[in-house]
């Protein structure tokens, strides 16, 4: 019964794909018109940022099967790079962003190298260590990061002479653009030779090797891409919260990102959006529960994992495989 329901929804959405996308896009673009309070707008932006982080981690964990518990590290590297570029060098927004992404991706490359020798849980522990190392470096490299004092007054991003703020909705629209770019990038990667290699590695590394896939290379690539996206998210996050220190990017954040991926549905892109909405909005929406809210939060996660371990939107699509148009034409002509 429930599977049929999913099938009907999928069929409906694929038939009216353009309309569905138009509605979603129009809805998201129109959000600022409703005059939500800055608090709510900020929450929307946070949801967007964590959706971006989840999309990035999903490439690594959901598709390539390498669980990372150190993603806050890349997030932090992006945020610190942006903040320091802005404050110390007065760099333009896009430059600071690109540098943040490059440095973060470089660290992703380094963290990916142990995949030569490690896999599974062992690798996960290495990523956990990485997250802590980044925090320790932030605390102790005082000349650069100001140590435990943190960095405040991070300048807002600007583009074409306009400064983005919460009130002129610059942050919100910039978030939408980033989210769209990340989504499209992930979609393009997943639906290509690279994405197939990722999925093959996740399911059976030995069989993947025997199909000629250079598994180490692709695992490292997944780390790099994932770190790059997290770095971009960090660079965007820094000016929005305005103040960052080592505790902004602690282990909880790594777990939070991974939770979004799991709750939404590993190895699906749709799940990342819903996961981010639920995980980020819940603590705010459930404020009336007062001190019990994190108890309820934890319970909900347990219940969900019991009844829907594949994640809320983690079903396998039952639509036909998306055959490239050119090939479809020829197949129909042949048949």
């Amino acid at each position: 019964m429930r599977k049929d329901f999913i099938y009907i929804v999928e069929n409906f959405l694929s038939r009216y794909k353009l309309i569905a996308w138009a509605v979603v896009c129009a809805g998201m673009l129109a959000v600022p018109l409703f005059g939500f309070s800055p608090f709510i707008m900020r929450m929307f932006i946070m949801i967007g940022i964590f959706a971006i982080l989840a999309l990035g981690l999903n490439l690594l964990t959901g598709y390539c099967g390498q669980v990372s518990l150190g993603h806050a590290g890349f997030f932090a590297i992006g945020a610190y790079t942006y903040a320091l570029m802005k404050i110390n060098l007065d760099a333009p927004f896009l430059l600071a962003m690109v540098v943040a992404m490059v440095i973060s991706a470089g660290c992703g490359f380094l963290l990916g190298l142990p995949t030569l020798r490690l896999s599974g849980n062992y690798l996960t522990i290495v990523t956990l260590g990485f997250g802590e190392i980044v925090r320790m470096v932030i605390i102790n490299w005082r000349s650069l990061t100001r140590g435990p004092l943190g960095i405040g007054g991070i300048p807002a991003p600007e583009l074409f002479g306009t400064t983005f703020t919460l009130t002129n909705h610059g942050f919100y629209y910039a978030m939408l653009v980033m989210l769209a770019l990340t989504g499209l990038t992930c979609y393009a990667i997943v639906n290509s030779r690279t994405g197939r290699a990722f999925k093959a590695i996740k399911q059976d590394p030995i069989a993947a090797t025997m199909m000629g896939i250079r598994t180490t290379r692709f695992k490292v690539l997944a780390f790099v891409l994932s770190a790059l996206i997290a770095g971009a998210a960090g660079a965007f996050y820094a000016p929005i919260i305005g103040f960052i220190d080592h505790n902004t990017f602690n282990f909880d954040i790594s777990v939070l990102i991974l939770t979004i991926v799991i709750v939404g549905g590993m190895g699906t892109m749709r799940g990342m959006f819903l996961g981010a909405i639920i995980i980020i909005a819940f603590p705010e929406v459930a404020r009336f529960l007062m001190t019990y809210r994190f108890v309820v939060y934890g319970l909900l996660l347990i219940v969900m994992m019991r009844f829907r371990p594949q994640g809320l939107l983690g079903w396998k699509s039952r639509l036909p495989y998306n055959i490239p148009k050119a090939a479809k034409k020829q197949l129909e002509a042949g048949a």
């Binding site: 399911q203 059976d204 495989y321």
Partner: peptide
């Protein structure tokens, strides 16, 4: 040793 979660054509 197939990739069970992937489509046959994949």
């Amino acid at each position: 040793r197939l990739f069970g979660d992937m489509r046959v054509i994949e």
